[in-house]
């Protein structure tokens, strides 16, 4: 298990989380992943990274600063992407059920990011 995998496993312990991954934001490619069976990691990585890049350009155009967190709400699931400075050009991506405790996911993601930066 890589260093990333151990940290991703902590996010995955939150009830309702179906998996988490570290993704290259520019390429949309998977760097590390810990996913439940059936979660298409490559597709999640490519699609979430694309949404994140779009959000980043939008925020820049609005002069709101760099996008640090993006959440996409679907009827049957949620996608999270966090881009803290500690991760450089990488995103922490989380796939979850729609009923997940969003606050808990964000808290655990923040802890993981802190650990990755340390």
């Amino acid at each position: 298990m890589s260093g990333y995998a151990e940290l991703l496993d902590r996010v995955n312990r939150v009830t309702g989380v179906r998996g988490s991954m570290v993704v290259a934001v520019e390429d949309g490619l998977v760097v590390a992943e810990e996913l439940m069976l059936g979660v298409p990691g490559d597709a999640v990585a490519a699609l979430v990274a694309s949404i994140f890049r779009r959000a980043r350009r939008s925020m820049s155009a609005a002069d709101f600063g760099d996008a640090a967190f993006v959440q996409v709400d679907g009827e049957d699931g949620l996608l999270f992407a966090a881009a803290p400075p500690q991760l450089g050009d990488l995103l922490l991506v989380v796939v979850a059920e729609s009923w997940v405790n969003v606050g808990l996911v964000r808290l655990e993601a923040a802890r993981v990011v802190e650990a990755l930066g340390g």
Binding site: E26, G28, L29, L47
Partner: peptide, 11 residues
Amino acid sequence: GEDSSIGLVQL
């Protein structure tokens, strides 16, 4: 270009 990525293209 910047509207896409190699991950998206592969997908």
